[in-house]
């Protein structure tokens, strides 16, 4: 008897090819208006990101991690969430916040070193930027446990990178999610690099998606520069989660087009040719070509979308920069629900 294959291989989901043509998987059903709105959000995210980089160079923002090249992975997944769902971003997730309608000026305020920018608006279930890599993963698992306990029709999405998949938090979180069959989507943006460490130094396995198999649930690879593929994969996974079908690991295969952050210099460790190669796979370009084929895109439309995005970012920058400097007393306000005796003494310095 031949040896049995007991686990299926990992699927790679792609809706559009690099020229914006539909491939094997049919595009998710979206109206023309929805498609255009989503494209405009992609343009907004890129405009915001580029502005943040400029402001950083001018000394008006602190260290900033660019999302260039990852817009489809971030917006495609976040837009597949519904009100009531919970999102757990890492630090490189401007696109997720923008998809949810997080106030842009607050994002700029935060990256300028002012924590008041991370006061998440009421009713928006997205956590503040999480910097210790991978640590947000068990939190999403816990939120999914809570949703299940309360019998809410809600699921969680947790964002992390290829580097994050090496942390114990990833494995522990995935394991628990499998054991309890929880409504959570693990969304890995495999952008090929963790600062200077390439993907193949994070794991010897062929895909990150296949790690789900060991924890007893589905893992799927998605072309992370294909907005529609990410949207479809996430929407399906979230629907499955809410139906009681348990967790999914989605590996978005994408690329970090810029330096790790503004404090990094990628030319020290990665070949230029690699970055060049990925330029052709630009997620905005692909979506644009698709819209063009559907007769939804014109030069004039593009100009409008860009002008609108620029105006929004201008406004955000103006608002962020006109906020009064924080009062030093603000340091004490949120350590605990109330001041301690010691803090009450210390705060008198101001």
């Amino acid at each position: 008897m031949p040896e049995q294959i007991v686990e299926p291989l990992i699927k790679r989901l792609a809706v559009l090819d690099e020229k914006g043509n539909e491939t094997v998987t049919p595009a998710p059903s979206l109206t023309d208006e929805e498609l255009k709105r989503m494209y405009e959000l992609l343009v907004l995210a890129r405009t915001f990101d580029q502005r943040a980089l400029t402001l950083q160079r001018e000394g008006r923002l602190g260290t900033y991690p660019s999302i260039l090249g990852q817009e489809a992975s971030q917006l495609g997944s976040a837009l597949a969430s519904e009100k009531g769902d919970w999102l757990f971003p890492s630090y490189r997730e401007s696109g997720v916040y923008i998809a949810l309608g997080f106030p842009l000026h607050m994002l700029l305020q935060y990256w300028a070193g002012d924590e008041r920018g991370m006061r998440v608006p009421e009713g928006m279930n997205v956590l503040p930027v999480c910097i210790p890599v991978g640590t947000q993963i068990p939190h999403a698992v816990g939120a999914a446990m809570a949703a299940k306990y309360r019998k809410d029709r809600a699921a969680a999405i947790v964002y992390f990178g290829d580097g994050g998949s090496s942390r114990g938090d990833f494995h522990e979180g995935m394991n628990m999610a499998g054991v309890f069959k929880l409504p959570v989507v693990f969304l890995c943006q495999n952008n090929q690099w963790a600062i200077s460490v390439p993907r193949d130094r994070q794991t010897a396995s062929k895909t990150i998606a296949q790690k789900a198999v060991a924890y007893g649930f589905e893992g799927i690879q998605v072309d992370g520069n294909d907005f529609l593929a990410v949207y479809k994969a996430t929407r399906d996974a979230m629907a499955k989660a809410k139906e009681g079908g348990g967790p999914t690991l989605i590996e978005c295969v994408t690329y970090r087009m810029s330096d790790h952050t503004t404090a990094d210099d990628a030319s020290r460790y990665r070949p230029k040719e690699e970055t060049e190669k990925w330029k052709a796979r630009d997620p905005l370009l692909r979506m644009r070509l698709y819209l063009e084929k559907k007769g939804l895109w014109t030069e004039a439309y593009q100009k409008d979308a860009e002008a609108h995005a620029t105006a929004m970012v201008d406004e955000a920058q103006k608002n962020a920069e006109s906020v009064a400097a924080p009062d030093p007393k603000d340091m004490f306000t949120y350590t605990y629900a109330g001041l301690t005796q010691r803090q009450a003494r210390e705060i008198k310095d101001f």
Binding site: G62, Y110, A112, G113, D114, E115, A325, P326, D330, M331, F332, Y334, T335, T340, R342, Q343, E346
Partner: peptide
Amino acid sequence: DVVLPLPK
């Protein structure tokens, strides 16, 4: 005795 504030 507070959480270390951001740069501002």
